[in-house]
Amino acid sequence: MTANNLPAPYPVEVRRSARRRRTVSVDLRDGVAVVSIPASFSARQEKQWVERMVAKLHANSQRPAHSESGLSDRASELSKQYLVGRGMPTSIRWVTNQNSRWGSATPASGAIRLSHKLQGMPDWVIDYVILHEMAHLIEPTHNATFWSLLKSYPHTETAKAFLLGAAYAADHGLSGR
C-alpha cells in the first residue's frame, strides 16, 4: 500500500498481526511508514488508523529538534551540558547515504552527519549519537579519553544497547511486532 491521500509523504506498509488485539503502532523504517494493526480490523478501521498514525509520524518528524537548525541547537545544548562547551560541530545534518553507521564526524572540518534511520528513534538515543560524534571532534579514536567524554551522559549504555538491538533487528529482518 502506498500513501494515497495521506497527510505525510511516506510510502506506507500495513502489517496485520493476529497477536495484536487493540494496539496500533507506526515506525519509520528506511523511509517507509510501517503501520502495525490487529488482523481483525476492517478496511475502514485500517484506513482510519493508517491516516492517524502516519499523520502522527509526520508531525513527530517535523519537530524542531529534528530539523537541521534544530540539530545545531540540540548539539549546542548537549555540548554545554555534557562536554563543557567543547566539540561543537561546524555543521550537523541528516544524510540518507549511511547504511552501516548511525553517524559520522570529520574532525578536520568539524562536520557531523546523522543517518536518517535515527529519525523516529527516542530523543535520548539521537542525543547519544550526537554526543558520540561531537566527542569524535575532540578525540577521533575510541580510546579511554573518548569514552570519558561520554561518561556524564546518563543514557550512554542504554542508548548503545538500543542501537545494537535496532541494528540486529534490521540485519535480521525483525520488526519487533
Rank of each mutant, 00 (worst) to 15 (best):
M1Q: 12
T2K: 12
A3I: 11
A3F: 02
N4Q: 11
L6P: 07
P7I: 10
P7W: 01
P11Q: 13
P11R: 09
P11K: 10
V14R: 10
R15I: 15
R15Y: 05
S17W: 02
S17R: 07
S17I: 08
A18Q: 13
A18M: 10
R19M: 05
R21F: 00
R22C: 01
T23P: 05
V24D: 04
S25G: 10
S25F: 07
V26G: 06
D30K: 08
V35L: 04
P38E: 01
S42E: 03
A43C: 03
A43W: 06
A43F: 07
A43K: 11
Q45A: 10
Q45R: 05
E46N: 00
K47F: 01
K47T: 08
Q48P: 00
Q48M: 12
Q48V: 13
W49P: 03
R52W: 08
M53P: 04
V54Y: 02
L57V: 02
H58V: 04
A59C: 11
Q62R: 15
Q62Y: 04
R63T: 10
P64L: 10
P64Y: 12
A65V: 14
A65R: 11
S69M: 06
G70D: 01
L71P: 15
L71C: 01
S72P: 06
D73N: 09
D73Q: 13
R74L: 15
R74Q: 07
S76L: 13
E77F: 11
L78F: 05
S79F: 05
Q81N: 12
Q81D: 04
L83C: 06
L83N: 03
L83Q: 03
L83E: 05
G85I: 00
R86P: 07
M88C: 08
M88W: 11
M88H: 08
P89A: 00
P89Y: 04
T90M: 05
T90S: 14
I92S: 02
R93S: 10
R93Q: 10
R93C: 04
W94E: 03
W94H: 03
T96F: 06
T96I: 07
Q98P: 03
N99H: 15
S100M: 08
W102K: 01
W102S: 02
G103C: 01
A105M: 08
A108I: 09
G110A: 00
G110V: 06
A111C: 07
A111Q: 15
A111P: 02
I112Q: 04
I112E: 00
R113F: 02
L114K: 05
S115N: 05
K117W: 04
G120N: 08
M121P: 01
P122C: 07
P122H: 12
V129R: 04
I130S: 00
E133Y: 09
M134I: 09
M134G: 02
H136I: 13
L137K: 06
E139W: 03
E139P: 06
T141W: 09
H142N: 08
A144L: 14
A144F: 11
T145W: 07
W147G: 05
S148K: 14
S148A: 15
L150W: 12
S152R: 15
P154C: 01
P154Y: 03
T156N: 04
A159V: 10
A161T: 15
F162G: 04
G165R: 11
G165P: 09
A166L: 05
A166R: 15
A167W: 12
Y168D: 13
Y168Q: 12
H172I: 03
S175K: 12
G176F: 14
